[in-house]
Design a protein around this nucleic acid. Structure first.
Lengths: 139, 139
DNA sequence: TATTAAATAACAATAATTATTGATTGAGGA
DNA sequence: TCCTCAATCAATAATTATTGTTATTTAATA
């Protein structure tokens, strides 16, 4: 709680209940929710909050480095409060997205040759496949 | 030319001028165009072709394995006729997307531990940064 | 060439996201 | 503490990418 209020203030953003609610929800889940999911989850406690507020808040958070946006090829973006670089596993059957904390696959830009002519600032590694529980159901 | 007609026929799809035009355009470019870009590029020679046809054709091609869809976080998808797995470089300044043919970074799923509980079918590695020409302009 | 099933173009519809706008809030100074 | 003003809020409208729908056209095959 202290971290977010501090981070917001440091970046000249106001600390509002909406922003705190969104950030806390992202901290508590590992499900990489979409804006829509966040909206539905928070609706009971924040019935007045609009979807546009979620989008704007997530956009602020992204700029400030509190969350990372994740685009795995679905129609909508997902959001992750774990901002250190790490690969993701995506089940193409149920849509589940999992974090993968493997150091060897988390800093691949270091393995790039010098002459590619790009200054790399960020990397994203996605693995698509079928998760265990979906595979069991199919069998 | 032979390859696409053959592939389409093998998959029970009709060979039409539109499909051939779209596939040839993708073979000739390395720019990873969007549906909209393909549409505009082909309009002069195929003024009657509709955007919906492009989308549907790209969808067929994807299913059949003639192209791969590429989602780098923009609002629209890009398409690549190079279907062997390879990383991509994205310039966050001008939006350019380049192929990166590096074997070491093209089969990373082989480096995954056995116990992740996923059957991986596809991987995508994206590097975001500033390209050389954008960097020069900024300086 | 005639037949038939699939593909096309035109247009409508949907869904995600963004822009706009008037109302509200809260930090800083009197 | 109260006032003022700029920033933020929520609601709504607008935009944009993509996908259905359908009548018409076309490619494949006999």
């Amino acid at each position: 709680m202290k971290e977010i209020t501090q981070t917001l203030r440091e970046n000249g953003l106001k600390v509002t209940p909406q922003r705190i609610a969104i950030y806390n929800m992202l901290l508590e889940t590992h499900a990489h929710p979409t804006a829509e999911t966040i909206y539905k989850t928070l609706s009971p406690q924040h019935p007045a909050m609009s979807l546009a507020t979620i989008y704007k808040t997530l956009d602020f958070f992204k700029q400030v480095g509190l969350v990372q946006e994740l685009n795995v090829g679905e129609s909508s973006s997902r959001y992750d409060a774990m901002v250190t670089p790490h690969p993701h596993l995506i089940c193409t059957h149920c849509g589940k997205v999992e974090d993968l904390m493997i150091d060897e696959l988390s800093h691949l830009h270091q393995k790039l040759p010098q002459d590619i002519g790009f200054d790399i600032t960020f990397e994203q590694l996605l693995f698509y496949g079928i998760c265990h529980s979906c595979k069991e159901k199919e069998a």
